[in-house]
Design a protein around this nucleic acid. Structure first.
Lengths: 115, 115
DNA sequence: GCAATATTTAACGTGTGCGTTAACATTTCG
DNA sequence: CGAAATGTTAACGCACACGTTAAATATTGC
């Protein structure tokens, strides 16, 4: 049950295009909050809330920078992606389990829906 | 560009717990709309809208039943899941690209992703 | 033809998510 | 010290997603 809750948070976080864009950016290298706000032409508060969502879901974490305590670098964390992949594996196991039924369906619909 | 839009639709669809529950049910076998509505203690119109979302995203498809034209069976479609997996692969490639930085970081946080 | 069944569409209320501006820490450095 | 810089909360507005009830559309069967 707790796992489902986390998966829910993860998918809700990933459903937003901005947050997914942030993840695609962080894929290359860690970034600062202001950097990300500018990248999406968004005010700092708006990006701050997105980062909070991503942080609470565990999709990103913040790292302090030693030479300036005002700045935090955000980077990706692997765990939520692994959990999502695990669920995806379960779902896709469907096409292994029900391969027969699938074939049977293909046979029933052969030539009926074609041109 | 179209691919990103589809991924957006897919993740938005999967973010809803009811729709994800529907998918988990359809994983076992195809179901009728009313069957699904009852399974989630929900009125038929509510489930009908969920099914429309899933249909538009291509996550499910409907099949007619030959002995009763009022009934439609819903079943899973693989394509959107494959696209989601593809994106997940891209993101997770991050931990391949930046393995050095990740190892250094994993040492601090005791990361648990096997080789 | 007509009542019953299965599902979808229409209209509506309500909550919530996302963006903005304003105000609040905290840190840097002239 | 005090002004600028970086980032986060607080308060507000708005659009949209999700559920309900009521009405509409097919289709079955007596």
């Amino acid at each position: 049950m707790g796992a489902a809750r986390r998966l829910d948070q993860t998918l809700t976080a990933l459903a937003d295009p901005t947050r997914r864009g942030v993840i695609d950016l962080l894929r290359k290298r860690p970034r600062r909050a202001g950097e990300l706000a500018a990248a999406f032409e968004m005010t700092p508060p708006a990006m701050s809330r997105h980062l909070r969502v991503l942080r609470q879901t565990g999709l990103v974490e913040e790292e302090a920078v030693d030479d300036d305590a005002r700045v935090k670098l955000y980077r990706l964390r692997p765990e939520p992606f692994s959990e999502l992949r695990a669920w995806l594996d379960e779902v896709e196991a469907f096409w292994g389990d029900q391969l027969d039924a699938f074939k049977a369906h293909a046979e029933r619909t052969r030539g009926r829906k074609g041109p």
